[in-house]
Structures are given as C-alpha cells and as structure tokens.
Amino acid sequence: MSKVPALELNDIHKTFGDAEVLKGISLKAYDGDVISILGSSGSGKSTFLRCINLLENPTKGEILFNGEKLGLEHGKGPDLYPTDMGQLTRMRQQVGFVFQSFNLWPHMTILENVMEGPLNVLKRPKKEVLEYCEHLLNKVGIADKKHMYPSQLSGGQQQRVAIARTLAMDPQVILFDEPTSALDPELVGEVLGVMRGLADEGRTMLIVTHEMNFAKEVSSEVVFLHQGLVEEKGTPQKVFEAPESERCKAFISSTF
C-alpha cells in the first residue's frame, strides 16, 4: 500500500441556499480500498460523492488526487470552482463515476457507449480500444448485446454497461452513487456481482449504497454519515456489529 492516498478529501462542506448539507467531511482512500458510505436519505452521502469530482461544487474543502491538490477558487456565490479546467478534466479521466440512473448515451449502441471515452477522450488507437471494450462487455456479461441500444436493455443490463463504460477509461478510483437503487429487486444481484468482482480484483472504490449485506462483505472500510457529518467509521465488523454511535446502531438495526 502506497503512502500517498489515491484520493484524499479534507473538510468538505456544501450548502444549498441556507441548507448546509455537508458540514466538513474528510476521507482518505488508498489503492485497493473499498469504502462504503452509508446513511439515511438526506445524510449527504450522494452529495459528498458528487463533490469529489465536482459534479457538485463544494463550498469549502480540499480535494487531493494522488497527492496532487485540485485547484479551487471562489466564484460568484459560495461555491468553489476549479482554477484550471484542464486539471479537473485530467482528474475526471482517472476517477470513474457510476450513476444511480445509468446515464448511458441513448443514441449510441452499447459498444459505442463503452468505446467513447478511451477512443475520443483518451485518443487511444481504435483497434486496441475495440478489443479491450469487447473484453469488458464480456466481463460484465453483455457481450451478446453490444450492437443494441440502451433502451433495448433492462435496468440491470444498462447498469452493467455503465460499469463497463467506466472501466474502459482505466480509472484509478471508481465512485458508485447508489448503483442499484433504481433497479428492480431481482436485477440488483447481477450488478452487485459485477461490483464484487471488481473489489476482488483490488480496484479502489467508493460506494454509496443501501445494500447492507454487500457493504458488510465487500468493504475494507465503512463510513456512516448523519446530517452532513461522519458519525461512525471503521471496519465493517466494527460498524455493523459494535457501533459506538446510537444513531448508527439504530440505522443498522432498522436496515437488517
């Protein structure tokens, strides 16, 4: 394990109007870490995840990627904006993000969706990209549907494609924002199966999820957020079996 965290967040704050959603959250993810972020709705877990690659602009805090600090400055209003778009773009290319609602590009086929990033953003040679993307689609079990459009796939299949699309960029860290929350119960398993495989490969992942059993089995660390603050953190054994905080205890017992 390297000394420098792959991803380091310091004292992240976020306000929407008068509402302070994040009140100073810090987190370090080293290579190979699988960190699950839990919390009831409104605890700020999705907002926190979206602040990491600036889908949401934090109002205060520091973001470091491999020790390199992302330049942020105040614009109009309370939000922080990147000082150098190029730096943010470079960081985003190495930090994957999987959405709750998949967000595949509907006018492109499955294969085109997956190839888009490496081919047109990273400008890798087409032959190599095609080979790699077909391999990835194989891995998530969608190879036979590669020429179909997203609208022709089930939710679980679309999410697996979205994961393949993220993997195609060879990201160092992958952020998952409630990847199974928009799925029918019987489709959740197939997506979790793919994610479990990634964890076993040693991928660095931050996962916002409601799937407690999954979080318990896969995570190296669990963080429980409550009202914009870290209420409890530690190994899954500690957080799930011997939580110190009352709120965390109540949350865990209500979800099992």
Partner: peptide, 12 residues
C-alpha cells in the same frame, strides 16, 4: 444525467 456522464469521463 447524460451531460454529467460526459463530464465524468473527462470530456472537454
């Protein structure tokens, strides 16, 4: 969401 999907792969 489709626009955000562009941002997260680091498109200009």
């Amino acid at each position: 969401g489709e626009v955000e999907a562009c941002k997260v792969v680091g498109m200009t």
